[in-house]
């Protein structure tokens, strides 16, 4: 394990963490304000990737793909909210889980029916293709750095919106005590629609950004969604700051674990056993970390809700 590889893997981990954050942010805000658990949030990420790739191929180029995919994912998110989700706000979590699970089944299958099961390709934007020398002899793709930068920028924007605007103050208040906010005369449903739309677009944006470097395929949102759940459980439900911290943590653990664990195991075991034990352990690592953190702090690292 050289320092170079470690640096590259850490950057990959942070970049994965940023994507996770973009998905988890919407999820945690939606849950915080409306007490609504939306399994179908990962679908927004998948749709972002598919629409981005399709529009890019159709209109010629990455930027058009991004520009057209964002409003489309937003519109689909709002349509879903209107059709299904808003009938579930007053129901228990069990009904919410099942109904949004149904939405996932439909959309994953719909994507299969429209685009087929073969993965799609999305072109890199020309300005961001190529690599940059981080160290002598170490070329890192510019695009991956751009994802990192965009994620950090968006996290900053989100922080500003949540901490320093009036809507943000309402969102924070809603996350800590929604009935009280409603009693003070705030239309919590409208506030929620704004939060929901914003979250859907963030997830769609993450999907478009991920499309050129990950394979665009049906069900790609599901595994990311489950990791996003881990992120918001660790970070504390309803907390944007917690989501950012734990998304970066989970991204690093996931990526570094996959590349380091087999080597680490080789210190104790023979090579083939080390490879297997390392791979098995690496896939468990995030969940072990989650269990450890919850054993100490059952409410997560930065709980938004007092008491």
């Amino acid at each position: 394990m050289s320092a170079q590889l470690l640096l590259v893997q850490s950057l990959n981990g942070l970049q994965f963490g940023v994507l996770l954050f973009l998905v988890a942010a919407g999820l945690t805000l939606v849950f915080g304000v409306m007490d609504f658990i939306n399994l179908a949030h990962g679908v927004q990420y998948m749709l972002g990737a598919y629409l981005g790739a399709t529009f890019a191929a159709w209109a010629g180029g990455f930027w058009w793909g991004l520009l057209l995919a964002l409003p489309t994912t937003l519109a689909i998110g709002l349509a879903l909210e209107w059709l299904v989700f808003r009938h579930l706000y007053d129901r228990d979590h069990l009904s919410q889980v099942l109904a949004t699970f149904g939405v996932i089944l439909v959309l994953n299958q719909g994507v299969r029916a429209i685009w087929g099961t073969a993965p799609l390709q999305m072109p890199l934007p020309e300005a961001l293709s190529g690599g940059i020398a981080l160290m002598p002899g170490l070329l890192y793709p510019v695009y991956r750095l751009a994802i990192l930068a965009a994620g950090v920028l968006l996290a900053g924007l989100l922080w500003f919106l949540v901490e320093h605007t009036r809507t943000g103050a309402l969102v924070r208040a809603g996350a800590s005590n929604a009935p009280m906010v409603a009693a003070l005369g705030v239309d919590i449903r409208r506030l929620f629609t704004v939060v929901f739309a914003f979250g859907a677009m963030l997830a769609g944006f993450a999907g478009v950004m991920a499309a050129p470097i990950l394979s665009v395929e049906p069900g790609m949102g599901d595994s990311l969604l489950i990791l996003a759940f881990v992120v918001i459980v660790i970070g504390g439900i309803g907390s944007v700051r917690g989501a950012l911290m734990s998304a970066l943590l989970v991204g690093l653990i996931e990526t570094l674990g996959k590349s380091l664990m087999p080597d680490l195991m080789r210190l104790f075991l023979d090579p083939s056993a080390a490879r297997q034990a390392g791979a098995a352990l690496a896939s468990m690592l995030v969940y072990i970390a989650m269990a450890a953190i919850l054993a100490v702090r059952p409410q997560g690292l930065f709980p938004a809700r007092a008491g």
């Binding site: 007490d35 658990i37 979590h93 489950i226 881990v230 459980v233 439900i237 969940y287 919850l294």
Partner: peptide, 17 residues
């Protein structure tokens, strides 16, 4: 040790593990 929506998410996460 957790309840409600935390429990749903954690059982989902362990299942994925």
């Amino acid at each position: 040790r957790t309840s409600g929506v935390h429990f749903i998410m954690i059982t989902l996460a362990f299942g994925q593990m």
